[in-house]
Amino acid sequence: MTAVTGEPQKVDLHEAKGWRRTKNRIMTTLMVTSFVVVLIPLAFVLVTVIGKGASVISWSFLTSSIPPQTSPVGVGGIGPAIVGTIEITAVATVIAVPLGILGAIYLNEYGGKNPLSAFIGFMSDVMTGVPSIIMGLFIFTIWTLHFGLSGFGGALALACLMLPIVIRSSYEILRLVPNSLREGSYALGATKARVTVTVVLPAAIGGIVSGALLAVARAAGETAPLLFTIGAAHMTNRNVFSGANTSLPSLIFTNASSPYAGAEALGWGAALTLIAICFILMIVARLVTARFARYTH
C-alpha cells in the first residue's frame, strides 16, 4: 500500500489502527462465536440421538410391533410407527402438493399483481405461521368429531400445514422462469393452460420438487397436528382411512415422558429413525435443486 502521490498531504491507506481495529476484530470474533454457539446444541442433540438410538436399532426393531411401555429394553420395535408415518405423510403430500402448486400458479401466472392475488399471497405467508397444534384442533373439529380417529385425519392436518409452504416455495421458483419462454409459446398459439403446464412447469420442476420435499420433511416430523386426529396404535394399520394409527413423532412424544427404560430406549431409536428420514429428504431436496437448477439466481 503506497500513499497517493501528487497530493500535498499523504493519504493513509493502511488498515484502521487502535480502537477501531480492535472493535472490528471483537465484532468479527463475536459473529464467529454466534455460529459456534449454534453448533454446540446441534452437535449435542445429534450425538445423543445417534449414540442412544444406534444401540437399539436393528432390522427387527424397525419392523416389529410396538410393545407395552413396561417392556424391557430390546423387546418389540417401531414398525407400525414407520408405516404410519409413511402412510400419513404420503397422503398429506398427495393432497397438499398439487393444490399448493396450483395455488402458486394462480398467484404467479393468473393473479399477477391484482389485489386478490396479493392478498392470497400475503395470507398464505401468514398461514405458514399458524401453529401446528391449531391445525390439529381444526381437523379434530371438522373431521375427527364426525368420522373418528384415522390416519386420514392426521394427513388432512399435515396437508393444511404443508399447503402454504408449498405455495411459497413454488411461487418463488415460478417467478424465476423467464418470460421469454411464455411469450415464445404464446406466439405459437398455445393457450394459457398449455403454456403453464407444458412450458412453465417443466422449466420450474426442479425447484418445485425440492420445495415440496422440504415441506414433506417438515410435515414428517410434526407431532402436534396428529395428537388429536390419529389416536394411538400398537399394531400396523394399513388402512389410512379408518381406525387409529400411529406415527414416529407421536410414539416419541408418548415415550418421552414415560418412566420406563424400555420405552425410553424405544423413543431414542424412533428419534434416530425420524431424524434419518428428515435428513434424507433434505439431502434429496438439495440434490434435486443442484441437478435441475436452471433458472436460479
Binding site: V49, A220, T223, I252, F253, A256, M282
Partner: peptide, 12 residues
Amino acid sequence: LAVVPSVVWGLW
C-alpha cells in the same frame, strides 16, 4: 438445525 423435529428437541 431447522430439520431436527420439534419432538426430538423435546425428547432430548
